[in-house]
Design a protein around this nucleic acid. Structure first.
Lengths: 131, 131
DNA sequence: AGTTTATTTAACTTCTAGGTTATATAACCT
DNA sequence: AGGTTATATAACCTAGAAGTTAAATAAACT
């Protein structure tokens, strides 16, 4: 895992971290505060915060002994962007393929000769990590 | 990791899997096809597909020896939903907090007595895994 | 029936994520 | 200076993720 989006999604994949983010939406606060609702040690929370920070989802300040944690929305834009870029396409292609396959099955019922996946293999194309 | 959203984000956190999904947006295809662009073994890709399937992002059919892989958009809706639910709030709160903190710092410059985080601790509230 | 093609399963390895406890650092308060 | 509070770091453990190779399964083609 080294690219930004992977980091973002990975950070969001943990319920504790999502809860922390949700809490932070209510406002900036201290690490101890953030840790309170969870049945886990402070260092564990500290690590989660480190993950969130590495993903750029969170920023840390300093006020006396406190290291207030603050949200950063930028990576969220990226992540949401990635999903949206495909999602609506997928919703379409889901329906499109669905009807297409029904059509194909109806055709195969008559003459089961040509195999769709064989053709698909021929038009193989290099789709290497389009991120 | 056991909840649906965690599974979805976790599945999306891998660039190989995102590439597979991107490829599938072009249409349903076979496992061999999907594996082709990657420098990894078939079983590796098979495992990735299993992950995507467990996350509900993909559905598998059967046509002869082939197990065509097809997209499912539902979990994407959920994931995008989760992000959007907070994102716009975060964008706001980011600005809100920013100006708030500037105001606070200006105040502290005069009389550095009250600590913001101390107050925050008192109004602590149980935000246990709101998913 | 035997071979080829497509895919999965099994049995491993290696690395990392997420947790622990114990200790260190840093700033505040007497 | 000494004690308390807030947080981070170190050192460790365990489970699981991601990859490998080798073998098993399933359907097609002669």
């Amino acid at each position: 895992m080294d690219d930004a989006i992977s980091n973002t999604f990975s950070a969001l994949a943990d319920p504790t971290r999502r809860a922390i983010l949700a809490r932070l939406a209510l406002g900036e606060t201290s690490v101890t505060d953030l840790a309170a609702p969870f049945e886990m040690s402070m260092p564990a929370v500290s690590k989660h915060l480190r993950v969130l920070e590495n993903a750029g989802l969170v920023e840390r300040g300093r006020q006396a002994q406190y290291r207030p944690v603050k949200l950063r929305a930028a990576p969220l834009r990226e992540a949401a962007g990635w999903i949206e870029q495909y999602r609506q396409f997928w919703e379409e292609s889901f329906d499109r393929l669905d009807s297409f396959l029904k059509h194909l099955q109806a055709e195969q019922a008559k003459g089961p000769k040509e195999r769709k996946t064989t053709k698909a293999r021929k038009e193989k194309r290099d789709v290497r990590k389009p991120n």
